[in-house]
């Protein structure tokens, strides 16, 4: 299994749970690395059910949004599913302003997201 520096990866049943190690996702080099680690879960490890748990994430920039959009595309083209949870209100507002809440499946917490995979 790959080593990760930007994310913590665990499994619950068939669902791969991703947690972010950075409180602020804004440094460009860090975002590139984050993207590579997230894409690897789909492209190298063929994980089909991804849950991104944003607990602890206080800030993310539009460059990070770009990585999430690309990840969502990769998951869908791999016939997988992706959900997000534990997003703080300010970041949720960013998703709403950019209408990304229309393409992302956003759930309140991890338990709700996990049950939505069933």
């Amino acid at each position: 299994m790959a080593t990760h520096r930007r994310i913590d990866v665990s499994k619950l049943g068939d669902v791969t749970i991703v947690r972010f190690l950075d409180k602020k996702i804004l440094d460009e080099a860090g975002i590139l690395e984050l993207g590579a680690e997230l894409f690897g879960l789909v492209e190298l490890e063929n994980r089909k059910s991804l849950l991104l748990n944003f607990a602890g994430v206080e800030f993310l920039s539009s460059a990070a949004l770009g990585k999430l959009i690309t990840l969502d595309r990769k998951v869908k083209s791999n016939k997988g599913r992706m959900k997000m949870s534990n997003i703080r209100p300010e970041i949720l507002e960013v998703f709403q302003i950019t209408k990304l809440n229309k393409i992302f499946d956003i759930r309140k917490d991890e338990a709700e997201a996990i049950s939505a995979f069933a």
Binding site: S62, L65, G66, T98
Partner: peptide, 16 residues
Amino acid sequence: RLEDRLDAPNGRGVML
């Protein structure tokens, strides 16, 4: 925010 641009990875900074 246009339907055909929703999944474009870039172009959100200025709008935010």
